[in-house]
Design a protein around this nucleic acid. Structure first.
Lengths: 235, 235
DNA sequence: TAGTGGTCTAGACCACCCT
DNA sequence: GGGTGGTCTAGACCACTAA
């Protein structure tokens, strides 16, 4: 169950960046230096750097090097990784509904495949805030089968994905998202502390995992008045 | 000015998919077959397939092959490529403002760097519809310096990016986006044929190009009532 | 000119899927 | 067992940047 080398390098470098040991504007060690440090080839180093670049953490310049990028005050949500990983500090998470066996929501915007609908499902709901400001309501549904005992777990670092990875070896491999601008219903408006009818962002997500056939379905409702949703993408 | 081999393979395969010569559910030729067909190594083939996968056109399964994915009825905008490339057919584009030298818009949500603000800029505005339904107002700003004669050009296939590529060798390398849900102002509402005050999606984009320092700034206003904005992302 | 990242070759071994 | 994709090695040449 060991992660591939390129992912270990990626995680190590990302850790350095997130802990602030390499600051925005600084350059990473050159690819050849990394090869020497980790005793691996450039192909593997470059695969790690490719992912850091695609998720917007570094910027590469031909002939110069790989520079750590500035963070922006937004919820870097649209790439695959979760909330806590992309946003900075100050994130507070409260459960509105603890993980429990439930029915699949009938009108999910991205429909689960038929096979999954026949199986029992686990649901939970959280409210995520930056400081004192609520910014997002998060709902998740996924088949109970692949994660026995999930309802009795405590989350690692408040991170759903980290918990899945450590306890079940399930990794997120990709996602598919749909986005709408809608009016906040009363209940939503109250939770997000906006006026009823205010425009809010609705995001429906299907996450793909390393477990073929095990998908996670999420629906997010976001107050973007102060924190827009952010996204970076590089070829 | 020749494109790298992996990009040629990528473009060729994408063309096959978009022209419908390989249908959703079908498998691409295996990596080894592609190596033989194009007389290149697997590293290069895989780089082409990586990009198709990241932009959500194919799905790879260990031990099986690379399958073309289903298209969805949404505006696949959030990845780097433009509108026409990701949405299907039926896209109609009308200029509200033809390309012309203008001032930079003062309150762009993603600010151009200081150096660019000192230079003259070209602006144009388009309304994009699917069939008879207007779905998006698109505004673009970029420095005039790098694209002499741009205001006299006609667009290739109604595609801004294709035009930049063919006439100036400028390729899109990445983008950075911010997304809000806002209320439509009167003028916007009229163009999008929604009620004033309806929720619409606002997307601000900075595109990075192969020309260092040449960035394109876009602001989009989208009616998501019928067509949500879509996005796919894979590690 | 020395060092950097961008592209590419020609192999290898493995895990996974199907028959 | 034969074919597939996933990972990795050990090189090479090139274009770009900076001193």
């Amino acid at each position: 169950m060991s992660l591939p080398r390129y992912r270990q390098i990626h995680d190590y470098l990302l850790g350095q960046i997130q802990k602030g040991e390499i600051l925005p504007g600084d350059y990473l060690p050159s690819e050849n230096e990394l090869c020497r440090s980790f005793s691996i080839t450039r192909t593997t180093v470059r695969k790690a750097l490719d992912e850091l670049q695609k998720s917007g953490f570094i910027e590469r310049q031909h002939g110069k090097g790989s520079m750590v990028r500035e963070r922006r005050a937004s919820l870097g949500l649209l790439n695959v990784k979760g909330f806590s990983e992309a946003v900075g500090q100050d994130v507070v998470t409260a459960f509105l509904q603890y993980p429990a066996e439930k029915e699949w929501k009938k009108d999910l915007s991205i429909s689960p495949d038929g096979a999954q609908l026949l199986m029992p499902c686990i649901h939970f709901e959280r409210l995520r805030s930056v400081g004192a400001e609520p910014v997002m309501i998060e709902n998740n549904w996924f088949p109970a089968k692949a994660v026995p005992g999930f309802t009795d777990l405590t989350f690692i670092d408040e991170s759903f994905f980290k918990t899945l990875s450590r306890h079940y070896g399930i990794e997120i491999k990709g996602s598919e998202q749909l986005i709408w601008s809608i009016e906040a219903e009363n209940k939503v408006a109250a939770l997000l502390k906006v006026l009823a009818g205010s425009p809010v962002l609705k995001i429906a997500i299907r996450f793909y995992t390393s477990h073929p056939g095990f998908h996670i379905y999420s629906e997010l409702l976001c107050n973007t008045q102060k924190y827009p949703i952010g996204n970076r993408y590089f070829l």
